[in-house]
């Protein structure tokens, strides 16, 4: 029986059955993502939802360790969201990327600054953008690689965070190439040493423990050498 045109009591108000679920998921996403500008983020969320794209939602809640006052405001979670949204294509449109950046309530200036490191025209390789973002997150190259591994890995969170060695070497070369201080020979030697250790396990995957540990070992070796000398 259709509702009469006029309503007389509160019992006649009808709530669409999908509304509570959508509302709940949205609320959960908002709580989890903690966007600075909820409205902006909501626009992005619902547009992604309507288009069927991956939603701009963090997998895990992040304590607000990154504020836009002192740093870029970019976090690993946000980078992961970005990567998730762009990973289906190899090359990403800059405009699209900027829109997504904005939807995550990140300042556009930072985006521009990020792109200045590797200037390009219309589109940028997704992995490169990710590598740039990672380099923005932490200071050293190793931390950047660590973030990258954590973002790219298919292992569950807290796991060894292994990624294919090819990707690792590509990103490493790319990032070290950007840094003019590091000579290419060092990079190659480091990569070759890593490759030996990876090949010994024969699965072609490199984890966090591999290069972080190897770094420590290298340091130890260096110390030993210095002591000997």
């Amino acid at each position: 029986m259709p509702l009469p045109d006029t309503m007389f009591c509160a019992q006649q108000i009808r709530i669409p059955p999908e509304l509570p679920d959508i509302l709940k998921q949205f609320t959960k996403a908002a709580i989890r993502t903690q966007p600075a500008d909820v409205l902006q983020w909501s626009a992005g969320y619902f547009s992604a939802l309507s288009r069927g794209d991956p939603l701009p939602v963090k997998d895990r809640i992040e304590m607000p360790m990154a504020t836009q006052k002192t740093d870029t405001g970019l976090t690993q979670g946000l980078l992961k969201v970005l990567h998730k949204q762009c990973s289906h294509k190899e090359y990403v449109e800059l405009a699209d990327l900027e829109q997504k950046w904005k939807n995550l309530c990140l300042p556009v200036e930072k985006f521009r600054a990020l792109l200045q490191l590797d200037p390009c025209k219309d589109k940028i390789e997704g992995i490169r953008f990710l590598a740039l973002g990672c380099s923005m997150l932490g200071g050293s190259l190793n931390t950047a690689m660590k973030h990258l591994c954590e973002i790219l890995t298919a292992d569950p969170e807290g796991g060894p965070a292994r990624i294919p060695f090819e990707t690792f070497s590509y990103v490493y070369r790319y990032l070290s190439g950007l840094d003019s201080d590091i000579p290419a020979s060092d990079t190659e030697s480091y990569l070759s040493s890593l490759k030996d250790s990876v090949d010994s396990r024969k699965n072609g995957m490199i984890g966090l423990s591999d290069f972080l540990h190897s770094k420590e070992e290298n340091l130890e070796n260096l110390e030993k050498k210095t002591q000997k000398t």
Binding site: R60, E157, G158
Partner: peptide, 8 residues
Amino acid sequence: ARQRAHEE
């Protein structure tokens, strides 16, 4: 995550 980290 803690479990996995521990496992790792």
